[in-house]
């Protein structure tokens, strides 16, 4: 393994994690007010009505697919009697549906964003940059999927290399050498994914982490009263919190 490969597959993942985690914490602390995705439903809703759920639900399925494919070792699925062939058949079938929904959804969203005047006017440079990263990750992911499934090339069992590498990062024993020889599509997709996670905290994508699951458990009407930590007219700036001294 040469030094570039070490940098890409052993070092970069940790840089990504660091940027992502620190970035998210920083953003949450300093920019709660900007923590939203600035819905454009008010401007246009007929396209959004179809495209947004299509994209988001597709994306959730894609995320679930990644979790299963990357986190669950092949030996486990083998142990419960799921053959490699059967696994991939399912993965490709479900993945194709989810991937297609995501792709069609995001295509409609981008089309809508570009062609609906008010929506385009409300699109910031930050948003455009984010779209590049997001689209790159999605499209390269589809290419990788097709490569794995044998639609492009001879097929490839990523669960023996990519997944093992992915898990090795989180147990702090990175095996970058596993990635070095994978098909190009997987490597590029992994890089695009890491790039996406690095820009994540600084874009509107942060809204993914405000999925309001607490809504299911809280009382309907919220009352707010005395909060001991704040006093006066202004919430203290981080680092200037009041002491009880």
């Amino acid at each position: 393994m040469n030094s570039t490969q070490i940098l890409l597959w052993d070092v970069l993942p940790y840089v990504t994690i660091a940027v992502f985690v620190v970035g998210m914490l920083w953003r949450f602390r300093y920019d709660k007010f900007g923590w939203t995705t600035r819905s454009s439903q008010l401007y246009e809703r007929s396209l959004l009505r179809i495209a947004s759920p299509l994209f988001h639900l597709g994306m959730l399925a894609v995320v679930a697919g990644h979790v299963v494919g990357l986190l669950i070792p092949e030996s486990w699925t083998n142990a419960v009697g799921v053959s490699e062939h059967f696994y991939h058949l399912n993965a490709v079938a479900l993945g194709a549906v989810a991937g297609a929904a995501t792709l069609v959804g995001v295509a409609m969203l981008v089309y809508r964003r570009r062609t609906t005047g008010p929506v385009f006017a409300a699109t910031t440079k930050n948003d455009k940059t984010m779209y590049v990263f997001l689209l790159a990750a999605i499209c390269l992911g589809l290419v990788a999927t097709m490569t794995g499934a044998g639609v492009l090339g001879d097929g490839y069992n990523y669960r023996e290399t990519v997944s093992v590498w992915f898990r090795s990062i989180f147990i702090l024993q990175p095996q970058g050498e596993l990635m070095a020889d994978t098909p190009l599509a997987f490597r590029v997709h992994a890089l695009a994914g890491m790039a996406l996670f690095m820009v994540w905290p600084f874009t509107r994508l942060v809204h993914a982490f405000s999925a309001p699951l607490g809504y299911l458990f809280r009382p309907y009407v919220v009352y707010r009263t005395r909060s001991a930590s704040t006093a006066g007219n202004r919430t203290p700036r981080p680092g200037w919190d009041r002491t009880n001294a």
Binding site: F33, T37, S39, H207, P212, V221, V222, R224, T225
Partner: peptide
């Protein structure tokens, strides 16, 4: 409000939106 950003003030019942917690749903 899914985010729990809207609240009724216990002191005088005025209903407000916490701009820091609103996520724009």
């Amino acid at each position: 409000c899914p985010s729990g950003a809207m609240y009724k003030r216990a002191e005088d019942g005025i209903v407000l939106v916490d701009q820091d917690r609103c996520r724009g749903w």
